[in-house]
């Protein structure tokens, strides 16, 4: 379940980073066209988790990588090292245990694969084709895309997702995943590079 719960997050982040560069216009066809020009992407991220039980946000940091058409590496470095790799229709999750990375073989990994497969469609700019979320665009000093769950299952976990995109360079700056009135996850992307040459082995299994 843990991995399943993580799925929507990974998915959303992917969508954001991939398909949002064109989100300045309320035009999902254009999103699809612009998404097709991205062949790879890398970014650092800082995640701040806020909850009532915490006096201050719990900060996690990590790195994100994407390569067209469907390769993803979503890696947390602190406070727990955790890596999700999705490539060629297969998703694997690795967790730190005993000083090394081991594969998470819980059933939730398969559930996450389903989610990531769905996300692959989003990465191609197919926002409106996804029945799990209703997407809308709000223009202002920055462009904000709001994804609202339409299904009962997702709605129980996520209230809404807000993706802030810079109007200046069309890069995703922030993602807010609102779980409820007192809980949200904010992810700030830093050092985003579009179409970089990714290191060999980025999407290979962790030895």
């Amino acid at each position: 379940m843990r991995a399943k719960a993580a799925g929507p997050l990974s998915v959303l982040l992917l969508v954001l980073l991939m398909a949002l560069p064109a989100a300045g216009a309320d035009d999902f066809d254009r999103l699809r066209r612009d998404a097709s020009r991205i062949s790879s992407l890398s970014a650092d991220f800082v995640q701040k988790k806020s909850m009532k039980i915490l006096s201050k946000p719990l900060v996690s940091t990590g790195k994100f990588f994407y390569a067209a058409p469907d390769s993803i590496r979503w890696e947390y470095v602190k406070p727990i090292r955790s890596i999700v790799i999705s490539e060629k229709g297969t998703s694997k999750r690795y967790i730190a245990s005993g000083g090394k990375m081991i594969e998470d073989k819980t059933g939730g990994v398969q559930a996450m694969k389903i989610v990531l497969d769905e996300v692959a469609g989003w990465m191609k700019g197919k926002f409106s084709a996804n029945p799990s979320f209703a997407a809308s665009v709000r223009e202002g000093p920055e462009t904000v895309i709001v994804l609202t769950p339409t299904g009962k299952n997702t709605a129980g976990m996520i209230e809404k997702i807000e993706i802030t995109v810079s109007r200046k360079d069309a890069v995703v700056k922030t993602v807010r995943i609102v779980e409820g009135a007192a809980a949200e996850t904010r992810i700030d992307f830093l050092h985003t590079a579009v179409n970089p040459a990714l290191p060999p082995g980025t999407f290979q299994d962790i030895p």
Partner: peptide, 15 residues
């Protein structure tokens, strides 16, 4: 006692 369990990705599955 108050407690919360979350995934490394920050998704809370028990509170």
């Amino acid at each position: 006692l108050s407690c919360a369990l979350m995934s490394p990705e920050g998704i809370v599955f028990f509170e």
